[in-house]
Design a protein around this nucleic acid. Structure first.
Lengths: 230, 230
DNA sequence: CCCAACATGATTGTCAACAAAATAGACGAT
DNA sequence: ATCGTCTATTTTGTTGACAATCATGTTGGG
């Protein structure tokens, strides 16, 4: 909601590169188990290798990548059990946030959400997946910020990021996308009407399709025979 | 449950220094708003400044310290609102974990918890605050690991760490300490008897006294006149 | 033909020197 | 006496070079 440039220098560079890599991973441009080589990334972003090192360290602490000493970083490969666990936490956190959000919300908040929602729907209609990804992120961020507990909102974002790895293989499914757009609209409608119970249920159930899509995709790939090992 | 040394080299050095600093902060040896100077820490731990840099970056991502570009790192100063928000999330997460823990628990788990609990009580009786701190951490880690969802357990630890900053000023209160020891015992007892409802309530209420102590301490220091600024 | 030891190349980890920025202290003007 | 400004010092940020480690390919013996 404004040009944010507290320091025009390299501090935001870290953020920028992190976001970019998160996006690459979420959109399936970099796949699980794929290596992330420091020097390559340094060349790509035209930046010193140390900067990349820092970024990789951040991504590791989020849980998006895994690093092994002297062996480098790879995109984390989530097991179905991991995904179940992540989604269980998401359900808990997002459900709680939905209970806390003021209904009906501040007009300013609602206006912002509606604006993001509209642009998200446009991007989806145009098949612009990069924008869809970014605007979806923005929507959820603004949405859960409305719960009034920044700590909770941060935790929600944290786990949403983790889940993005799982979604990378199904993120461009047009059916899921259409459904998500539709549900965002419904969430905003329920906000306005102020039906708390249905609102909370809608928020919680909103994340389920992406989990199911992952599970189905996994089963399709590995069938019944595969250890659940990490 | 064994000596963990996957790499005997410097990878654990980061962990060690992080833990040490967390402990210093939690025990009030380093206070909120106090500066953490890279070179001093490098000298103290006999390590290169880059290692310290890495550690500070980790602590920042946890939310224990704050870094400003070209200005260095300080221990984060939590506002009462921050503390309320952190504890709200803790309550949510730990309550859910309590619902998930198998009752009665595996004998091995119970035995481990009882062992830690005994040593914790001993340390408390001897006024050995460093050991009290470490064993308390161990207890909660082992306890919540029993919920079966590692993602949830990790989030719980994450927020417990944040809360430690708030506890630094009241951590050596003997009354609180005695109460905590007592409550740990009760938690184990309720595990064995398998009374789910009372068990969950006990777990959730266990964290309240430390929050109240912070709030009281804050009021005592600042009275009624003080902005709630971050 | 296959396996093991070795040599080579690729990749990450560590370090010390340099550059940039901010803080603290001294000085002078009002 | 107070404020602002300038300089010196402290502290953080950045870079390039070097060392350690791991993965790969190759050669020689069985």
């Amino acid at each position: 909601m404004a040009l944010e440039r507290p320091t025009p220098t390299a501090l935001n560079e870290l953020e920028y590169i992190s976001r970019q890599l998160e996006e690459d991973i979420a959109l399936g441009r970099i796949l699980p188990r794929e290596r992330l080589i420091e020097e390559e990334l340094a060349a790509r972003f035209k930046v010193n290798r140390h900067v990349i090192r820092q970024v990789l360290s951040d991504l590791e602490s989020i849980g998006i990548i895994v690093r092994q000493r002297n062996k480098g970083a790879t995109v984390r490969d989530l097991s179905p059990a991991d995904v179940e666990n992540i989604y269980a936490v998401r359900e808990l956190l997002e459900g709680k946030a939905a209970e806390l959000i003021k209904l009906p919300p501040d007009p300013a908040v609602l206006a912002e959400l509606k604006d993001i929602q509209r642009r998200h729907a446009d991007a989806a209609a145009n098949g612009n997946f990069t924008d869809v990804f970014r605007l979806n992120l923005q929507f959820h961020k603004a949405f859960f910020a409305a719960c009034g507990n920044p700590q909770l909102a941060e935790a929600i974002q944290h786990f949403a990021l983790k889940a993005h790895i799982a979604r990378s293989l199904t993120i461009s499914d047009p059916e899921l996308l259409g459904r998500a757009v539709n549900e965002h609209k419904q969430m905003l409608d329920l906000m306005e009407t102020g039906d708390r119970q249905r609102f909370v249920r809608m928020v919680v159930e909103h994340i389920i399709p992406s989990k199911d899509a992952y599970m189905e995709n996994y089963r399709r790939r590995f069938g019944g025979s595969q250890s659940t090992g990490r």
